[in-house]
């Protein structure tokens, strides 16, 4: 027991001497970024890249941890939100998290967060190489002729890729048989194996398979065409179906967030570091090599983007019958 007493005393003394070392205001100690999706996913990678750069400008380490589970990452989000709102706990998230509210995992609207958007990879529609569809027109016309017969894969109901598929259906009038998969990789796998004919995922996830000839790209689901090395230019699907512009693009918005009521000083410091980090060559090169489009939106700009995403996702899910809480109950306006 004596030993314990001595140890405790030593520890206490050490603690007392430690108190006055820091003079800088924010950040004084390490920051923790809670990523609500698993290690190695798009959100996780994005967060690790940006935080590795940001910590150089902040002067402290940013530790990235993963806390998964719940609906639409609600467990990690609730955890990050329950920590003190002092700017020392960030939440790494993506556009898919906006559905946590209507799915009953989160009692707030999304604007309790101040968001920082790193960017995202644009969605693309592709087919199995041995199908007869050479262009998007071929595919859409075939789907119109036999509605609900052509199988189309995307990750789970209500995911960003499913929303893109739905928007494509609405904008072009085609009707596919939607087959959900557990994520982008299994859905692409199924398209390669020929189990389904059509697949919608992001370019970052698909580029290897497209360039390797395992899948055939038909069109980007954004207003612009896209140059892919070794494959040439993938046309925008808006070229053949201008009506799509009414529903698309629905873009990924990967980044991180801090509670909106965190001290102004902390938010300002984070913003400054975020802007500097976005301008570094490392982030730019990473984005280019991985087919990401950088955004860099913060403050009011990113708030507007997330509000739009939230209302779009929430009401789409409600219309599909996959939401448990009515969006209007949370005060989410219709898109």
């Amino acid at each position: 027991m004596k030993k314990i007493l001595v140890i405790t005393l030593v520890l206490l003394l050490a603690a007392m001497t430690a108190g006055n070392v820091f003079a800088q205001s924010f950040p004084k100690r390490n920051i923790t970024a809670v990523v609500v999706w698993g290690a190695g996913g798009g959100t996780d990678t994005c967060n690790r890249i940006i935080h590795a750069e940001m910590q150089k400008f902040l002067g402290v380490n940013v530790n990235v941890i993963n806390k998964t589970g719940g609906v639409a990452g609600s467990v990690g989000m609730s955890y990050a939100f329950s920590r003190p709102h002092d700017g020392y706990t960030l939440c790494g998230l993506s556009e898919s998290n906006v559905t946590a509210g209507v799915q009953g995992g989160w009692n707030n609207r999304f604007d309790v967060w101040e968001t920082f958007i790193v960017g995202g990879s644009p969605d693309i529609i592709s087919v199995t190489p041995n199908t007869p569809y050479k262009t998007l027109k071929d595919l859409i016309e075939a789907a119109k002729k036999s509605p609900g017969k052509i199988t189309a894969a995307a990750s789970g109901a209500g995911s960003i890729h499913h929303l893109n598929l739905l928007a494509l259906e609405k904008g072009s009038g085609a009707d596919f048989n939607f087959i959900p998969y557990k994520g982008s990789a299994p859905s692409q796998n199924a398209a390669m194996a020929g189990e389904v004919s059509v697949v919608v995922t992001s370019l970052a996830e698909q580029q290897q398979l497209l360039r390797g000839g395992k899948l055939r790209a038909l069109g980007m689901l954004i207003p612009d065409s896209f140059d892919v090395e070794g494959l040439g230019t993938i046309p925008s699907s808006f070229d053949s179906y201008p009506g799509l512009s009414k529903y698309l693009p629905i873009s990924q918005a990967i980044g991180f967030a801090v509670p909106a009521d965190a001290p102004l000083e902390a938010r300002a410091a984070l913003q400054a570091a975020f802007r500097k980090a976005m301008a570094t060559d490392k982030v730019k090169n990473w984005a280019e090599e991985n087919y990401y489009l950088l955004s860099g939106a913060t403050g009011a700009e990113s708030k507007a983007i997330f509000n739009a995403l939230e209302s779009n996702f929430a009401w789409t899910l409600w219309d599909l019958g996959a939401a448990t809480v009515k969006p209007s109950k949370l005060g989410i306006p219709k898109p």
């Binding site: 190695g40 990678t45 890249i49 970052a204 290897q208 360039r211 000839g213 990473w286 090599e289 991985n290």
Partner: peptide, 10 residues
């Protein structure tokens, strides 16, 4: 992926 290597046919 973190180290910028995307495995795949290419």
């Amino acid at each position: 992926m973190l180290h910028n290597v995307t495995p795949g046919p290419m």
